[in-house]
């Protein structure tokens, strides 16, 4: 039985989602009629080799792209029906991004990088941004530029930035891919506590151990879901 089926509320629902790219060599079907449901508060790991459609799925789940056929509903809204502007606003309110390469703006301090997410969402609030930074244990590094922070610290700033607007969905793309073992543990711990606080986490990973932290794992291959299973290490509470 699917874990998702036991959860009361579906926050993400893909129905026969298809995305094609047209190029000189012809049309490539990056996602091929994928159907997937994610419940609120669920931690889903997405795995698959390069070219399997993970990037396209991240695009769709992050409201950065639209399907050619089928539908994607996030928090009850069909994103294909939203205008470009509405989609930008919806993305800022609904999805928090955690990247493998951190992608902090190099000329802004740790605190300002967090405030940047507030700036594009609605308005900046230094106190709130500081509290987010303190939550990830970097209160004393607020004025440091990304180049003055370690990889683990940068990833924690990235997590604080993803959380600042309290989005219901966190999209983590290889969140520990660039970290050493100690920082992996810190970040994994942060993600677990966020999930326990009710955040839905969609995590793309190559790391089978990391994937085992999730509630459920889906595997993509050639744009299709080829496997879907419960993760073994997940502390299920349902």
């Amino acid at each position: 039985m699917s874990v998702a089926a036991t959860r009361p509320e579906t926050i993400i629902e893909l129905r026969d989602a298809t995305r094609e790219y047209r190029g000189h060599a012809g049309t490539v079907r990056a996602l091929d009629s994928i159907s997937l449901s994610v419940s609120r508060g669920e931690w889903l790991a997405i795995m698959g080799p390069s070219g399997s459609g993970k990037s396209t799925l991240v695009n769709l789940l992050g409201c950065l792209d639209r399907v050619d056929a089928g539908s994607v509903r996030i928090a009850g809204k069909d994103i294909n029906t939203l205008s470009r502007k509405e989609l930008d606003q919806f993305r800022a309110e609904t999805v928090g991004f955690i990247f493998q390469q951190f992608h902090l703006i190099p000329y802004l301090s740790a605190l300002e990088n967090i405030m940047l997410a507030q700036y594009f969402h609605s308005m900046t609030d230094r106190k709130e941004a500081m509290a987010a930074l303190e939550r990830v244990g970097l209160g004393d590094r607020a004025g440091h530029l990304p180049s003055e922070l370690s990889g683990g610290e940068q990833q924690r700033v990235c997590i604080a930035r993803a959380l600042i607007n309290q989005p219901p969905v966190l999209l983590a793309d290889e969140p520990t891919g660039n970290l050493d073992a100690a920082n992996q543990q810190i970040v994994t711990g942060l993600l677990r506590s966020l999930n326990q606080l009710g955040h839905t986490i969609l995590m793309v990973t190559h790391d089978p151990e990391m994937a085992q932290m999730a509630d459920r794992i889906v595997e993509l291959h050639h744009g299709r879901i080829v496997a879907e299973r419960e993760a073994s290490l997940a502390p299920h509470t349902s």
């Binding site: 950065l64 502007k85 930008d88 606003q89 991004f97 594009f120």
Partner: peptide
């Protein structure tokens, strides 16, 4: 990154 954070075009 700005776009991902909600910046419009």
């Amino acid at each position: 990154v700005m776009k991902a954070l909600g910046a419009t075009q």
